[in-house]
Design a protein around this nucleic acid. Structure first.
Lengths: 340, 340
DNA sequence: CTGAAAGCGCTTACAG
DNA sequence: CTGAAAGCGCTTACAG
């Protein structure tokens, strides 16, 4: 019912050549005469021959497939990274298999193992939040090149492609200081999270370098940095004896929740309280006032990760464990602009 | 350097059995004795044996890989569909290869052909806007089961999973009529687009069934239904002698652009002009007033598409060309609520 | 109940 | 310059 693919064998038969010769002709092997090459190629295009990449991969122990594991594909930032991965991979002749871990450590390992079973040439992964034990991930690294992106871990010895989280956060806080803010709150993550920790470091460094005292009361930690939590934490901050005059939420959604709450209490943004988020999500330009935030170049991260992975794949004997930082850019909008 | 996978051969050798027996034992073939099965399985788990799915697929002419082609992975709706696809596919033991067509007809075909070269068992695709000639797509359908989702086409004979666009739009317009609106504008797509046409049909039917005259002046067509275009078209509608009292934009982003413009002119929403979008994007709850819109259950669409595709894959002789409609739900929010 | 052999579609060292 | 043969890791009809 379904049409069959034509194989080298069939080409060989109709041309009265051996399969080997046909294979070599198609691959432009120097041994083959121009005449034969022409003949073979003509027939191949005429019959619309396409090599069975599966068989080829099987033979060469190279599948040209890259496996990708991400916590959640629907996060806008993740989807832009994936776009970059797809583009760069396609350009280099690789296909991409994508899996979601849903922030579930068990599922993450399961996905990784299936990838291995499908003989992917390499794996790109953004580790899930709940990754405590990395021993099973280390086993995977033994088998195939792996590159981590976005969420890094110093427990996993492989190259990593990340945003300059610390510096970007530093710049954000410095911007707040430059517009006259001195009592800057941060809403960060509760549990250990690479991104959150790095951003928090940047926050601390900025305060320190500008001689602003750190006040634990305005350092807020929550489990999930969601819009809902942003609202709740804004309420909490407003209830303090001395309110902050700026709030840095380490995600846009929390920042948007903060803005919504401030507006409810008729607090002037940015005059009374300025707000900064992180990630330049689509909604950051829909909220009023528009949110100052840090743009994370997702496509660039994805493309870079692919480049390094392919390098590792093609030179398996000189694996290096670099950490590549991609710059995130502060985008100044109305939630911090013209503060006074 | 990298560890090798262990093969059936190695298991066979250490157990002094033939490869055939080991293979059968692992697959619970009835011919094999319980004792042997036990022995084999014990060693397999001990050595952490995982079958090479690639070799298996190669042999069985079945790869358990599904190919997916979408115009743009970063569209939120698309990413929710992909989530549904990934979940359902994983559940059924399939892997998913994803490609972007970027709304480029050439690239779309190219992707489809690479999928074929990788011997995918079936293809799920959302056709790009600019798909005029479908003849090359028809060739693909000859080779492997294909299911279309979101954007359908009656020129392509295969099953299709879509939103009940017409009915959903009808419901949206009827809702506007119910809150007292009688002069309802629509912002739709210029070029032929399945979604746009169906939504427009629903619009027309609702007006007709409620005896509201159609006025061409408030039927606006644009090339891309973006936020920017929403703003421009809102300006245009406001410049009319008799303004509409409601605007149905066939995408959320256009609707959000409309709202922003209406606010700029201090027009009361929904009292003066009500606004409805389509797709329940994340931003639709960030804009003020929150946007009434139609929720498209992306994950359900994805999961359904996978189910039908696997059915086609496993019963290649009884392919049916059904069109499955998934219901979109009208979500009433402030942009139309309490209109008077 | 178990094994030897063929074959899936390719590539490649070896031979001529 | 071309071909015969082996082999990638599996499954499965055939034989015993």
């Amino acid at each position: 019912m379904k049409k069959e693919n034509i194989s080298l064998k069939q080409l060989a038969k109709t041309l009265n050549l051996s399969v080997s010769t046909v294979s070599r002709a198609l691959n432009d092997h120097p041994d083959i005469s121009e005449a034969t090459k022409q003949k073979v190629k003509t027939l191949a295009t005429k019959l619309n021959y396409t090599p069975n990449l599966f068989a080829k991969g099987f033979r060469q122990k190279k599948t040209n497939i890259i496996g990708v594991v991400v916590p959640n594909i629907t996060h806008y930032f993740t989807s832009t990274i994936l776009k970059g991965i797809l583009e760069e991979a396609t350009l280099k002749g690789y296909k991409v298999i994508i899996s979601e871990s849903n922030n579930d450590a068990e599922k993450q390992i399961e996905m990784l193992n299936t990838m291995l079973q499908f003989n992917v040439d390499g794996i790109l992964m953004s580790i899930s939040k709940v990754t405590r034990k990395v021993d099973r991930i280390l086993k995977v690294i033994d088998r195939v090149p792996v590159i981590l992106f976005d969420k890094a871990s110093n427990k996993i010895p492989c190259s990593q492609v990340v945003i300059n989280e610390e510096e970007a956060a530093y710049n954000a806080i410095e911007h707040l200081i430059n517009i006259g803010k001195t009592r800057i709150a941060i809403i960060k993550e509760n549990e250990y999270s690479y991104n959150s920790e790095r951003r928090f470091s940047g926050y601390l460094r900025a305060l320190k370098e500008h001689n602003i005292e750190v006040d634990e009361k305005i350092i807020i930690s929550v489990d999930d940095i969601s819009l809902r939590q942003g609202k709740r934490m804004a309420n909490l901050l407003l209830s303090l004896k001395t309110r902050p005059d700026a709030i840095f939420a380490i995600t846009d959604s929390a920042a948007i929740g903060v803005i919504q709450t401030l507006k409810k209490f008729n607090i002037k943004i940015p005059k009374d309280i300025a707000v900064i988020g992180f990630s330049n999500s689509l909604s950051s330009t829909i909220i009023e006032p528009m949110l100052t935030t840090i743009d994370q170049p997702g496509e660039k991260i994805g493309a870079t990760a692919v480049k390094y992975l392919i390098e590792d794949i093609e030179n398996p004997n000189e694996l290096t464990n670099k950490t590549i930082e991609i710059k995130g850019n502060l985008i100044i909008r109305d939630s911090t602009f013209k503060a006074y």
